Computed example of a mutant assay.
Amino acid sequence: MKHLMRLLAAVLCTAPLLSGCNTTNGVGHRNPDFSDYQMGRIAIDVQPRNDVSDMVEAQLVDALNRRGVKAYKTSDITRFAKDWPEAAKKIAARGGKELMVVVLGDGRSAAVAGYNASAYTTGNTTYATATPMVANFRDLEANAVIYVPGPNGGDAQVAVQVDAKRHAGGLVFTRDSSMAANIADGIIEGLDTAGAFP
């Protein structure tokens, strides 16, 4: 019975560290000048370049392709271009008609969620320890903008803009892979609300 109580106490004390409040949402807006716009063949570029952006880019390409949009990632192009005009030419050469630029903002914080306390007595003396339990929180935000060619080959114009946010708490849900998958889902949700799917 004593072991069962210790196990139960350990589970109850560590649960706040592993899980927490988790929310994801995405809201999309369509430019009224592009009321008939639907995604066709689109290049995806996620910035700033790091492990999380690479995961988000891969998640978006996969999700868009499953929804019938011809999407491809640009990380293999933009990394090796000397400047943006060269990258744009290479993207166009691969058949890209539209470009989605996603800018990520990633914030992390931690707070003491409670204390794991223990005490024991030897003779007439009682000893106690209290170890803080730290809860981790992470916020990932994305601003996704779809650019389409302007009329008569003019400057690119914004057809759709999406804001997506992911808030997570706990060790399990704040990993890079979990955050990337969820922010990609938020962007897809925003594209849905904007009516950008064919």
Rank of each mutant, 00 (worst) to 15 (best):
S19Y: 15
G28M: 01
I42C: 06
R41Q: 14
D45K: 09
L17V: 14
M39F: 06
A15E: 08
Q38A: 09
H29M: 11
P48C: 04
N22A: 07
D36H: 09
D45Q: 11
N22P: 01
R41F: 07
R30W: 02
G40W: 04
Y37E: 02
R49W: 10
C21P: 02
D36T: 11
V46M: 08
I42P: 01
V46H: 01
G40R: 10
L17E: 02
I44E: 05
G26M: 03
A15R: 05
L18F: 14
C21A: 13
G26A: 00
I44D: 02
G20M: 04
G40S: 14
L18H: 09
N31H: 02
N22Q: 08
R41T: 11
C21W: 13
F34Y: 15
G28R: 00
S19R: 13
M39C: 07
Y37D: 03
R30Y: 04
I42F: 04
A43L: 07
L18Y: 10
P32L: 07
N25T: 13
V46W: 06
L17G: 06
R49N: 14
Q38G: 08
P32Y: 02
I44T: 07
R49I: 11
D36E: 14
V27N: 09
R30A: 05
A43R: 01
Y37H: 04
F34A: 11
G26T: 00
Q38K: 15
P32S: 10
G28Y: 00
N50S: 08
R30Q: 06
N50C: 05
V27H: 10
P48W: 12
G40T: 13
N31A: 11
G28W: 00
P48Y: 07
P16A: 02
P48H: 07
T24R: 08
F34I: 05
Q47V: 11
N50Y: 05
P48I: 06
G40L: 03
D36Y: 04
C21H: 14
T23R: 13
L17D: 04
Q47K: 13
V27M: 06
D36F: 09
I44W: 01
L18D: 00
G26K: 01
A15C: 09
Q47L: 14
T23C: 12
S19C: 15
G20L: 10
F34Q: 14
P48D: 04
L18A: 15
Q38R: 14
Q38E: 12
D45F: 08
L18I: 12
Y37M: 07
P16D: 09
Y37I: 00
H29P: 02
V27T: 12
P16I: 02
